[in-house]
Write a protein that binds this DNA or RNA. Structure first.
Lengths: 145, 145
DNA sequence: ATGGTAACTGATAATGATTATCATTACCTG
DNA sequence: CAGGTAATGATAATCATTATCAGTTACCAT
């Protein structure tokens, strides 16, 4: 059973002339099967269970490619390394980050669009994307709850 | 003439028992005199013009300290390194980042507060801070303008 | 003012993520 | 199924950041 994401992503690669190689398929499969926001190192460990030959450099290259194709979204959850998530075009959302345990929770309420036109006009800027990060404490870590 | 920021920051350090050392004062002075969002490397180069003895490790340590005291805010404008800006408590703002030239423009329209309570309730999360980054093209780089 | 002391610093090495290099491999098209 | 080329894996190189540690300095009590 191939996931919907695998189908769409495979299509996107083929359409633009990129080969459907083992590392690319393995990474797509990993992302499709694991919800969350993995860093490269986690993806690398994950895919090497089934594909021990895949090298770290390839994982970096592949995620750069997927990012440029809009298949994944890059998240700066930690300052020392990047995280990635599947980019579903119609699943607009942002992230809450617990400053105690590091947990990441998604939220989909977003009223930024209401402001965008105003900002664009004032700053003479064309907005194409936006990200919101909210820091605080999750229910596990906030004793006062 | 000592700037308002220098006064406030110096006070904050003294109050909490931190010494007013040459590197700390030099970095405060640099930040007060240079608007913008410098990375560590720029701050280091900047202060070494007047204070050639200050080492890179001290700049890192000092900015970590200033961040923990709320004197500066950390920005993840680039994936490879952190940037810093003075944190004026009553000058809430966020950033537009040009994907062509890298220019960073501030905007102060922010309606996130309107949403925060709703998100907190839905996600069982206590929000303490938030950041918004909008990516796109500045007027210089957007030919269609 | 001075001296003691802990906080702070500068130099350096160590770490960890990411990028560059390059010879080899494996997708795809015909 | 063979050939050309994009893609890969291994390795080294780079760059930001952190850790270490011996020497220095700001500050308080004298």
């Amino acid at each position: 059973m191939r996931s919907r994401f695998m189908q769409i992503a495979g299509e996107a690669l083929r359409e633009r002339g990129y080969k459907l190689t083992e590392p690319r398929l393995a990474i797509l499969d990993y992302l499709a099967r694991h919800d969350g926001h993995p860093a490269i190192q986690e993806i690398y460990k994950g895919i090497r269970k089934k594909h021990p030959g895949i090298g770290m450099a390839t994982v970096y290259r592949t995620l750069d490619l997927f990012t440029s194709l809009g298949l994944v979204r890059v998240l700066t959850l930690e300052s020392s390394r990047l995280h990635y998530e599947i980019n579903w075009p119609h699943a607009h959302h942002h992230h809450l980050i617990c400053t105690v345990c590091g947990r990441v929770i998604e939220f989909s309420n977003c009223n930024f669009q209401q402001l965008a036109a105003e900002i664009e006009k004032a700053a003479q800027f064309t907005i194409e994307e936006h990200t919101i990060k909210a820091y605080g404490k999750c229910s596990q870590c906030d004793r006062s709850r």
